[in-house]
Amino acid sequence: MKAQGKTEFRTGVGTLLKISLAPTIWAFHFVICYGATAVWCTKLTASGDTVPLQTWLSALTVAALAGIVACGINGWRTWRRGGYGEDGHTPGIGDTESRARFLGHATVLLSVVSFIGVIFVITPVLLIGTCA
């Protein structure tokens, strides 16, 4: 039994926050899309041409999706390590492995939702080609 000192904050919250990495990527993607559109349309283009904006944001989207997939794969591995079983009555739910499995599973699920979210958010950029 050793007190965990400073690492308590890092390991504790750090690991917990890991499950929300994918939604955080979604959030950054969202904010950048919104901010870039606002600045592009009000400050950078006079003609209302949106092709450069669409290109850059599509590239950003690909990067964001890659990041989310990476999170998902990472979570998938943690989840599968030691087999399935994420539900309440599985024996041995009180051990460290099952906690890790749970976090892995939650990471996978959140990655799926974030993935869908990112695709939704980029849709308007691709479908609406004007600054109006």
Binding site: F30, T37, V121, P124, V125, I128, T130, A132
Partner: peptide, 13 residues
């Protein structure tokens, strides 16, 4: 701008 609305429409869905 419509694009900006689109982002929020998408997230709302």
């Amino acid at each position: 701008p419509n694009i900006s609305l689109g982002f929020f429409s998408a997230a709302s869905e």
